[in-house]
C-alpha cells in the first residue's frame, strides 16, 4: 500500500516537474528532457496501479496464495515506453535539424524564424 501510494505520488509529481521544465527552460533540448521526465511520470503512475501489497510479479510458478500484480497496466506501460522513445527520437532529430539550420535552440526565436519564413 505505501509502496504503490508513494510511487503513484511520485508519478504525478514527476509529470508536474517535467511540465515545469518544459515551460521554464528556454532551450529546446532541455524542454525535451522535461517532456521525457513527464512521460516517465505517467508510466510510473500506471505501474503503481498494477502493484498490490506484497504482490509477486505476474509470472506463473509462485506458491499458491501469494497475490499477483495486475499484468494489464504493465502491458500498457510497455507499449507506452516504446511510443515515448519513438517520439523522443523523432523530436531530437527535428531539434538537430532546426539547430543546424536556424542556429538557435530557443523556442521563441525558432517560432519567429518560422513565422518570418511563412510571411512571404
Amino acid at each position: 500500500m505505501t509502496a504503490s501510494l508513494s510511487a503513484a505520488t511520485l508519478g504525478i509529481v514527476l509529470v508536474a516537474l517535467g511540465f515545469g521544465a518544459l515551460l521554464l527552460r528556454r532551450s529546446l533540448i532541455w524542454k525535451l528532457l522535461g517532456l521525457n521526465v513527464a512521460s516517465g511520470g505517467a508510466i510510473l503512475f500506471l505501474v503503481a496501479l498494477s502493484h498490490r501489497p506484497g504482490a509477486r510479479p505476474p509470472l506463473m510458478g509462485y506458491p499458491e496464495g501469494v497475490p499477483s500484480a495486475d499484468p494489464l497496466p504493465q502491458a500498457l506501460v510497455l507499449t507506452a515506453i516504446v511510443i515515448h522513445f519513438a517520439t523522443l527520437a523523432l523530436s531530437l532529430a527535428y531539434a538537430i535539424s532546426l539547430t543546424e539550420r536556424l542556429h538557435t535552440q530557443e523556442t521563441g526565436r525558432l517560432e519567429e524564424a518560422a513565422e518570418e519564413e511563412m510571411e512571404r
Binding site: 525535451l32 505517467a42 503512475f45 515515448h84 527535428y94
Partner: peptide, 30 residues
C-alpha cells in the same frame, strides 16, 4: 523547410503533453 519542421515539433510536443494526461486518465479509469 525549417518552418514546417518547427510546426511539426510544436505539434509533437503539445500533443505529447496531452497524451501524458490521457495515459494518467487510462490509469484512473482502469
Amino acid at each position: 523547410k525549417p518552418a514546417q519542421v518547427w510546426a511539426s515539433l510544436k505539434y509533437l510536443i503539445l500533443t505529447s503533453c496531452g497524451m501524458i494526461f490521457y495515459l494518467l486518465g487510462v490509469g484512473f479509469v482502469y
